[in-house]
Design a protein around this nucleic acid. Structure first.
Lengths: 198, 198
DNA sequence: GTCTATACACGGATAGAC
DNA sequence: GTCTATCCGTGTATAGAC
């Protein structure tokens, strides 16, 4: 085995864990399996991480960051409906481009719900989603000169609910057309909650 | 240990697995842990089930049946908005009454996505949700003398997306008020897709 | 500082006693 | 027909060689 600096090993192991969970599920992500995927010796694992949980926490943070970035990418174009639609479609492209990111995050979230050590990681994850959704809605309202007729926090949650719900359904049946149709419909629906700014 | 007939043991074990997964997560549901929870000797497990997967399949089917029943409970009352709202609220009451049902199903679904043996169980689960949602929408349209302005399949998916999304968000932050507010808002939104029947 | 070899507990599953 | 005792693979983690 090539001797590799620990800093680089950490990265390799996190990436490997991502691939294993994405393709074979959470249960398959044992230390042995992850090391094999990374091309690293088994002992490298506990040399780089104090425990398996430490790797999972880092993986969660990193994967979540990617998702938040994707959801923060606002596409403003013309009116509110168009902007919401373009933004949701932009997000959806990132999902189809790398479906594993969603799959892995669902698995990690599910796991975190029952691990006190990781529970706050999951909550921070959701707080970040809501913050991002809120900013997206504010940005669109600003650009289109409208205001929202429901509390922004409530709308933000609706946006998160829709993206998560559509993603979850898609992970099960992989019906991309249905997913896009649902997103478009919701974009149209949400746009109905905006009125010209006074 | 009391000598118990196999038929009854099966039931006990499935119930025990449900409780263990609900309170401690999927990973905690080992054969030993489940047997302990059920007050059964270890060997009872493989006497009643050919494998752990067989128990998981039965647990999935059973838990899913409970959820489908809850979602199939339509509350018609006055206009479309009220009916949708009452139906979603009725569903939500069952969630809050037994949160573990949702938690367990999410875990099982997640697991099934990477187990070929159980994959079709997950798909059937979702197919059942869509069928139920469709029937709910048809029933409401019928009772309120309206028709839907989007394909019923698309609306059914939207209903599933909303219920799943709201549930998932709630499992993470347990914000019941936000969940109800989101459901009410979506009920109102969806009602806007109905017009008087011609 | 990094890897080879090993410890030890726990997982699912079973053989055979009652 | 039901349970006790055990098998053997795999899991995380580590001790010690290089």
């Amino acid at each position: 085995m090539a001797r590799v600096p620990a800093r680089e090993r950490r990265r390799q192991l996190v990436d490997a864990a991502f691939r294993v969970i994405g393709s074979e599920g959470f249960a398959a992500a044992t230390t042995r399996r992850v090391c094999a995927e990374a091309g690293a010796p088994l002992a490298a694992f506990h040399y780089c991480f104090a425990s398996k949980q430490e790797l999972l926490a880092e993986l969660t943070a990193q994967t979540m960051a990617g998702l938040v970035a994707a959801r923060a990418d606002v596409h403003v174009s013309g009116d509110v409906t168009q902007s919401l639609r373009a933004t949701l479609r932009g997000y959806w492209e990132t999902v189809e481009k790398d479906p594993n990111r969603e799959s892995v995050l669902m698995a990690l979230t599910q796991h975190a719900l029952h691990e006190p050590e990781l529970a706050d990681v999951a909550e921070q994850q959701y707080a970040a989603y809501h913050r991002t959704a809120r900013e997206t809605l504010e940005e669109i309202a600003d650009a289109c000169a409208v205001r929202w007729t429901l509390p922004i926090a409530q709308l933000a949650r609706m946006l998160v609910v829709v993206t998560d719900g559509v993603t979850l359904a898609w992970l099960v049946d992989r019906d991309s057309d249905a997913a896009r149709a649902a997103l478009d419909a919701f974009a149209h629906q949400l746009a109905g909650l905006a009125v010209a700014a006074g």
